[in-house]
Design a protein around this nucleic acid. Sequence first.
DNA 1: TGGCACGTCGCC
DNA 2: GGCGACGTGCCA
Length: 216
Amino acid sequence: MLWGRKPPAVNVNVNVNVNGAHAHAHAHRTAMPRAEPLNVHMPSKMSADNFLSPLGQVGGAECMNRLKVPQQSNGSSGGGGAGEVCSTPGVIVMTTLHSGAGSSVATMTDSAFQIAADCQHSSSASCSGSNASTNTTVSANSSCSGGAAKRKRKRCGVCAPCRRLINCGVCSSCRNRKTGHQICKFRKCEELKKKPGSTVERASSVGAADTFRWFF
DNA sequence: TGGCACGTCGCC
DNA sequence: GGCGACGTGCCA
């Protein structure tokens, strides 16, 4: 049982919420490359034997193409192309997954609500929990628990490492699992590698803007 | 600055 | 209570 926990997707909205909270990450983690290069550099032995990517049948790019939000759902087909959609993969992918195919409008509404709720959380630090209306429950680790309390962030669930299901078994984290208490290096969420602040910036400057453009 | 180990949290 | 995983301090 290497990945017996709930699917990472359920953590997405939590992740978005926590981004607004203060959780100073390790100062070492600055600007990590995105997830895709990680797969490129993966030893062939690992990718073939130890990893069982759910997207193995479909490449990451193709997956994004499949999951990207239809343009007609918002009416503004100009700037917000697939590339910008991919800039906030967490929200878009998650909402697409749980809203099911065919409900593109609902998908956009969901994602917009999530981003909006996130922005509200970031600015006012309110704790309404209304953003949970479209997704799973807001776990207690969000910024709601005591305001500035440092809570653990959650995996984004959509980056390449998060999509991996099986530990490599050869990295230091896997080898030292008992003492290291760390997830496999190849499964370490890209968002968690970054400083929380950088994630907030990206989410608010790009993702939120695009989503609002779709939403309004 | 990156990696490792420990403490602790969160979920089952 | 057990286990997986995140946060953070410490060290090379």
